[in-house]
Amino acid sequence: MGTSISRTTNVIVNVFLIVLVLLCLLPIVLVLSVSFTDETSLLNQGYSFFPGKFSIEPYRFLMETNLSGILNAYKITIFNTVVGTLLTLLMVALYAYPLSRRDLKYNNFFTFFLYFTMLFGGGMVPWYLVCTQVLGLKDSIWAMILPSIFNGFFVFVMRTFYKSTIPIEVLESAKIDGAGEYRIFFQLVLPLSLPAIATIAIFTAVGFWNDYWLPLMLINDPKLSNLQYMIYRIMTNIQAIREYSQDASGIATSLANAPSEGIRMAMAMITMGPIVLIYPFLQKYFVKGLTIGAIKG
């Protein structure tokens, strides 16, 4: 019966998919392996999937000289992610709610006011001048949060969700019972919208966690570097690692014989490790969210 592919085709398709899966995994495995390889064997044999000589030296070096710098970068990243995500959710959910109400006269104006910004922008230069000269965000922790706390795409996703899942009768009966709009919003609408909020929250959180762009534009102070920006700077120049170490004078001498190639890759592992580890648990919400928004019924 023609309900599934034949046994041979099944094998071929599986092989094809396994090759793709390996392509996805191998770069990560390579970095992991390099980060555990002895520096001299790295220099002699190059990067390889099997450490020539196993070593935890890069991690030991980082723990000894850069622990506080790494923890600080983690702290900044976590702060940005948590605060940024909460603010984004609040802003998006608030703007989308009145848009979803059919009885507002000026809805079209506010739709256009948002939509136009998604079609056309002033560009990077004026944006940069606004951030630095009007808002004074240069070298402020808010530089990595405020410019990203609103997103037109999410507003329209949210509005669609409100419209399609919140029964108008619920809103009306709440109103008859004398509830104000804010009370209805926070106590009725938001709890009913949790699936959409969860999806937007994960997207936003990953965006904040992976952000290197805002610090690249607006942060110079190493103490304000988030994880991505820290490893970005270390990639560009391994010497930058000094700016993230406990004691700048001591490391200046020891960096000469430090396992610098291994350190780089260990840094990469320390940064992506948590994401790779929690990803399998978050994945299903992501998939659900993508399919809520993207596929028409």
Binding site: L90, M91, V92, L94, Y95, Y97, P98, R101, L104, Y106, F110, F113, L114, T117, F120, G121, G122, G123, P126, W127, L129, V130, V134, L135, L146, P147, I149, F150, V155, G180, E181, Y182, F185
Partner: peptide, 21 residues
């Protein structure tokens, strides 16, 4: 009350989208 919910987003757009224009 409903219109006031537009305020935070509208301020954001004014500053980060319209002012750069």
């Amino acid at each position: 009350a409903l219109y006031s919910m537009f305020i935070p987003g509208a301020i954001f757009l004014l500053i980060f989208a319209y002012l750069p224009m």
